[in-house]
Design a binder for these strands. Structure first.
Lengths: 349, 349
DNA sequence: TCGTAGTATCTAATCGATTAGAATAGAAAT
DNA sequence: ATTTCTATTCTAATCGATTAGATACTACGA
């Protein structure tokens, strides 16, 4: 049973009694006009033959593929094995990316990239002509991701960075969120509640987000004329075991804090559980604020007070900026969009 | 500044002093032999010009795109707004899919599909010639997804279904996991622990997984000669509020259960929190077992006893089966792979 | 009546590769 | 020396669209 041959342009043209050029004009609504009568005939032929254009042929000629890639440099080590897209934020970002690409008639290719050897694979992809643009998620420190941006830049493909801005010399638009202000707001809120000893448990400091959150926390204390006590600032990785260890150490200190700002919700949960198991009441004895506001935060009892980050929105914006970059001249003015975050007050602080 | 012209085949051929055919033979290692000397010359030219072949041109001619799509029919309504890939399982499956596609030199396109109108968009994608194969995740009941499979089938593109088998008449290979046995095992374990009144809080029953888990639960009770009490079987959606409501109702009954099997970890957490807030001790007063074994399950205190589902493995297998289907004749024997699940004993049961 | 302008359509080059079939050179066989 | 083969390489058709340039037709004003 031979697979039926593809219905092409030519078949449509023949059936409609016109040239292939006209078929193209009809399909694309231009660039030249067609008479109403011919147009109808072509559309009828298309319907009758159930014709669908070949994206490959079209792209080859027009140099536009209607595809953008999401280059995720966010491998998270979750213990047993490395997973990608594991952080709840990844899902939300992906949601934003994919809905917005779809809404604009584009397709989304996902391409995680971890260790450096994979840069070769990325190079092949970027140079294959398959992509109209890329969205890169940067999470780690600059030195770890600059080679990546360098490569993208050299291929001269429209690119937008999310979560962390790329080095300005590359001139990429960015969509970030105001991590620092989030930490500041959370800390300030705790201070307003009367807390004077507020601890911070951070994540992996190679992640830029960790640094920004730490910085916001410090600034809030400083602005409130509260001392910064390094004894109650701790943390190591994004793994709960390390967060729990940090919490333990902090609580065993001379003057344990009455509030803790965790660098993420997924750290806050284990911390809370640990504290409860030690007999602390939350928020009675210790207030806790998380970060990210993942769906589960709302569902716990007590529900987790957290800083909401508009991840879906970030994905959407990133796609829009990418499309802008594609439309505009190659040196379109770069946009830096810093999305606001929001304190969601719930039961733990 | 005109974008530099693309380096093509021809440029390489000219520089190496050979025909374009030879360039192709060298790049693809065939289908005809080349002399060692020419081969070297071509490779040198490629390196010197930093030539990268156009995937579009190549695909157009060879009818292979090295791309497969992940068609996710798993919109989850998380309350405020609909998100895709939100369930923790989605991330893990995606991880498996993307690592395995990459490992085989393929690319992964993600294409969520929800409401029925979007079938048109899918049709366009499938018929565009952009894809070599597809992996479809089926979560809802058959009547909701059959039109989808019908369409894929009619386009005659290699396809593998995951999570739930497609109707056999389509002849697609499937990768599923033994939900029923998981629920059975969990229930059986609770019985072994001495429980005789075991409740089940299920998720949205339009999801096949809900039904399978419910079924395994029932079977285990039956096999142990325990009565099935519909009063302690409840649930409505995948939202925590509904799970909590169900738990509340169940615990207020005449003879409250001493153990609860939740249909997912994300339901188990809020249930546990609710029970604790009501003064129940976990697992002292009530044992709880979750389902999915998401990363957070290990991190809670007490850590959640759960049924581990090999999501990453599912993604990998799905890709491999898809590649098989692409390689084999169109009517290759369909494979049905049911991956085992595992009870992970932790602190809640 | 003719030139001119404007519209709609057709012809054919083009995008950048793959791959049959023809051509060539050198080695082996007669 | 001529024929036959084999191992390489070249030529050119092909994949299925887009689009610039040529052409045909209509309508208009002078």
């Amino acid at each position: 049973m031979p697979t039926q041959k593809r219905v092409t342009h030519q078949d449509v043209a023949k059936l409609a009694g016109v040239s292939t050029a006209v078929v193209s004009y009809v399909i694309n609504n231009g660039p030249r006009p067609t008479s109403l009568e011919v147009r109808e005939r072509v559309l009828r032929a298309i319907a009758e033959l159930d014709y669908h254009p070949s994206a490959l042929a079209r792209s080859l000629r027009s140099q536009r593929t209607n595809t953008i890639a999401f280059i995720a440099s966010d491998y998270y080590d979750v213990g047993d094995n490395i997973q990608i897209f594991t952080a709840p934020s990844s899902s939300a970002i992906l949601t934003g990316l994919v809905t917005e690409t779809k809404a604009n008639g584009y397709y989304l290719l996902v391409f995680p990239i971890g260790v450096e050897e994979e840069l070769n694979q990325l190079q092949v992809l970027l140079r294959s002509g398959r992509l109209d643009g890329v969205v890169v998620r940067l999470v780690q420190e600059s030195s770890a991701t600059d080679p990546l941006l360098e490569m993208i830049s050299s291929v001269d493909i429209p690119c937008v960075c999310i979560e962390r801005p790329g080095d300005p010399r590359f001139g990429f638009s960015t969509v970030t969120f105001d991590d620092e202000r989030g930490a500041y707001t959370a800390t300030q809120y705790l201070i307003e509640q009367g807390h004077t000893r507020i601890a911070h448990i951070h994540g992996d400091l190679r992640y830029d987000a960790s640094l920004r959150r730490l910085s916001g926390y410090r600034q809030a204390l400083t602005d409130a004329n509260l001392p910064i006590d390094e004894q109650i600032i701790a943390g190591k990785t994004w793994l709960s075991a390390d967060a729990i260890a940090a919490a333990q150490r902090i609580m065993q200190g001379d003057a344990p804090p009455t509030a803790i700002l965790a660098a993420s919700d997924t750290l806050a949960f284990p911390i809370i559980q640990f504290l409860q198991s030690q007999g602390y009441r939350i928020p009675g004895d210790v207030s806790v604020i998380g970060f990210d506001d993942i769906p589960l935060a709302r569902d716990m009892a007590p529900a987790l007070t957290s800083i909401r980050i508009p991840f879906v929105e970030i994905g959407r914006k990133a796609v829009n900026l990418t499309l802008d970059a594609m439309a505009g001249s190659s040196n379109a003015n770069t946009m830096s969009d810093v999305l606001p975050v929001e304190l969601i007050r719930r039961g733990t602080a």
